[in-house]
Design a binder for these strands. Structure first.
Lengths: 295, 295
DNA sequence: CCATATCTCTGACTTTGGTCAGATGATGCG
DNA sequence: CGCATCATCTGACCAAAGTCAGAGATATGG
């Protein structure tokens, strides 16, 4: 990483805080102070539980209570206890709260428009495209990849994977695929890897080791997070986990419609081999020797 | 401007304040509070007058004094009266102040590096390129174009123009070009237009009207601000000024090496005509009928 | 030299944003 | 039931950031 790149990032930071920083200050023009406005926004049209708000915004619990009291006094929200656990409270917009949130939303739109307005249409399109790219790549940098115990979020990822496969390959039927037993996703038999962005899952992958051979399955990346190296990072972690579990070789199969995945496997050092299983919707089989745990 | 574009700008804003906003918070880790750190930075290696600092940072004069007192107490700056006017004070870094500023600088670099670090090199290059584009276009949107009385900054622009011409066309010699008399840049004979970004000049252009014919000259845009429509905006304002001064036709000549300028003139409705003057380094002559002042 | 304007400094004050320790009330486990 | 735990609430407290009115020093025009 050279100093030019660093300088570009810093120039970017300066330019953005100068021109776009005002987008946040728009809240200042209204009667709500900024953290209260952000909170109102975060509550959203469907309401939210306080513990979640606290986590998302990183607020002190006392501070949060105070902010909410203010919003309640202004008639913008009402709060009550959550149905499932009467210790936790939920906050919800009132009609006035909905109006206020919409007004803040419009103010934000106006300021965003002000950024584009002075530019001729061609530059405007270029700016929007560049902003989208920056947004995407900044998010990519914030994706974390880690081994996790299986849970409902992992199941949701796998379900999304199957839905996508069904959309690409008309033969596919999630009911007829070999199930992965839950205990194969825990040590010493295997591991589950999740990719997350700000806590929300954006990818998954599983590895299961049998007699020194690791089988990698269910590797999927959310469409919004593709092309950012998330798949490669998950694959690397799956292989490392396999090594840690004593595997000397990694195998995987894939559907012919998943061309991006095939390219990833090839570039990660896998070579195509004859079918090593009878997975119903597999069209290609790959294998790669893993480094030994000691090396 | 469609809603997709607005949404992209807003998503960008959110992503950036989340990931890059931390760049400013880096000051929080140090012992200096944020405004004091910014102030220290703004004083710069050559020192600065308080009135200028106040204007640049938009600070209350009392507040500024307090911040400076703090910096002085910490041994980071010293201050004295300005030579030219003993009412105004100057602030300057001490050796310790220089060290502190460098440390802040390094902290900023580290955080900028942290933005790029998690990305693979290809994505990193894409991010840097997109950031540069965003920076450039945001700046473009902040460029102002206005008629101004001539001054030293306009002269500096013209000098830069001549330097550039000399670099492109070996024949060129600034000494042998027709001079523009100063009174031709004021009403009722003409006008000077300047383009500025945050107060600093990034372009100039002059128009001088004789017997109902406007001659447009010295149209130049700083290399960093090209391709952003600044030239077009200046040209439009020059034509409007010409109309206001009673011109019915605009004429201009240009050097053959300035191909971008020629494209601009053609797309702005000018057509090439035979030479109407004997300007030594002109190769092309253009003309355009101007709308009447009444219409 | 006077009146007026300009620039800086000072002290009093306010708002904002935030932390912390402990009280209160609901839940779940044995 | 008794107790530990959890989520929230409350009040006390704090620093940072900023505003304001006015005092004091210096310049400038007449």
């Amino acid at each position: 990483m050279d100093t030019d790149q660093i300088a570009t990032v810093r120039a970017f930071n300066r330019a953005v805080t100068r021109r776009i920083g005002a987008l946040d200050d728009c809240y200042l023009d209204r009667e709500l102070p900024l953290p209260a406005a952000r909170l109102l926004f975060e509550i959203g049209p469907r309401g939210a539980e306080l513990r979640e708000l606290r986590a998302r915004l990183g607020l002190d619990s006392g501070y949060l209570t105070r902010l909410l009291r203010r919003l309640r006094a202004a008639g913008l929200i009402r709060s009550g206890r959550a149905a499932r656990d009467r210790r936790v409270r939920r906050a919800e917009w009132t009609a006035a709260g909905r109006r206020e949130a919409r007004a803040l939303d419009r103010a934000s739109d106006t300021l965003a428009r002000g950024v584009l307005e002075p530019l001729p249409p061609a530059s405007r399109a270029r700016l929007v495209a560049a902003m989208a790219e920056v947004t995407r790549l900044l998010r990519a940098g914030a994706v974390t990849v880690a081994v996790e115990p299986p849970g409902p979020e992992a199941e949701a990822c796998v379900a999304a994977y199957f839905t996508e496969l069904a959309g690409r390959d008309a033969r596919f039927d999630a009911e007829r695929i070999r199930k992965l037993a839950l205990d194969r996703l825990h040590p010493p038999h295997g591991a589950l890897v999740m990719a997350r962005l700000d806590g929300a899952p954006v990818g998954c992958g599983a590895v299961s080791v049998t007699n020194g051979a690791a089988e990698i399955k269910r590797v999927w990346v959310h469409p919004d997070a593709r092309g950012l190296g998330v798949g490669r990072r998950m694959l690397a972690l799956l292989e490392a986990s396999a090594v840690a579990l004593g595997a000397g070789v990694a195998r995987l199969d894939t559907n012919r419609t998943l061309t991006e995945a095939r390219a990833l496997y090839l570039s990660a050092g896998y070579r195509e081999v004859p079918a090593f299983n009878d997975e119903m919707f597999a069209d290609h089989w790959f294998e790669k020797a893993l480094p030994t745990g000691a090396g």
